[in-house]
């Protein structure tokens, strides 16, 4: 014997689950359609209407899952960053060479992963100046992982005596990340590919690491010259 009302509550539960599943399916379709449009048409040129049409859902359905176009992009970027960091975390412990070579390798991997969908990365950069403060906060939290990875590599370099002990590591890490991100603009404008980007970053890191060398090794070089 079922208690009274059990059937209706079970039925309600089922309806809720179906609705949740439908919502999830809509969300996935919206994300896939938006990702393809940002990549091919560009972020600025893509409208919510275009996303809805490509996803085969009503415009209203897009808004029930995401508050704005910036939020859709943010969601896509979150997924992409997860993929990037899985790759970086997997490879980081096995990278050979000194601090400079390892930072260079890390950023080379980042370029490799991001350039698979350069359009999306450019969409991210285009949107990043106009998006609201809360999305900026989330974006910074994502970049924090990259910052942490580079910082650990430099710290290891200090321990190994390759990087001077009194260097302001936070300042250098921030500079490295700014230059890394700035290169996407160069890539877009000058048509650089992954190889070109990595080579450019290598030269930039050489210039930056000049200032990170321990002072005694600099004098040794100067005396030798």
């Amino acid at each position: 014997m079922l208690p009274p009302g059990a059937l209706t509550s079970a039925r309600e539960g089922w309806i809720v689950r179906v609705r949740e599943a439908q919502k999830q399916a809509t969300r996935e379709r919206v994300v896939a359609a938006a990702g393809a449009l940002f990549e091919s048409v560009g972020y600025e040129q893509t409208t919510i209407r275009m996303i809805a049409e490509a996803a085969g859902v009503a415009i209203g359905s897009v808004f029930t899952t995401f508050a704005s176009k910036a939020e859709v992009l943010n969601h896509i970027l979150l997924q992409r960053f997860e993929a990037l960091f899985e790759e970086l975390d997997r490879l980081a412990p096995h990278l050979p060479g000194g601090a400079r070579q390892r930072v260079s390798a890390l950023l080379g991997i980042a370029y490799e992963v991001e350039c698979r969908q350069l359009g999306l990365m450019l969409a991210h950069l285009a949107a990043s100046h106009g998006w609201p403060a809360e999305i900026e906060t989330e974006s910074r939290r994502r970049h924090q992982r990259l910052i942490q990875l580079i910082r650990e590599t430099l710290k290891h370099g200090v321990e190994q005596g390759e990087v001077r002990r009194d260097a302001d590591l936070d300042l250098y890490v921030e500079m490295i990340v700014s230059v890394y991100l700035g290169n996407y603009r160069t890539a877009w404008y000058d048509g650089l590919d992954v190889g070109g980007l990595s080579k450019l970053m290598e030269r930039q890191l050489s210039a930056l690491f000049e200032g990170l060398q321990p002072v005694n090794s600099r004098t040794v070089i100067a005396e030798a010259a």
Partner: peptide, 24 residues
């Protein structure tokens, strides 16, 4: 021996990136 062109590009990148600090 410095590469003035490379350093100038990097300084401009940093200068532009710093605007985020002003904006956000």
């Amino acid at each position: 021996t410095l590469d003035a062109g490379l350093l100038a590009d990097m300084l401009m990148d940093l200068y532009i990136a710093n605007y985020r600090r002003a904006v956000f």
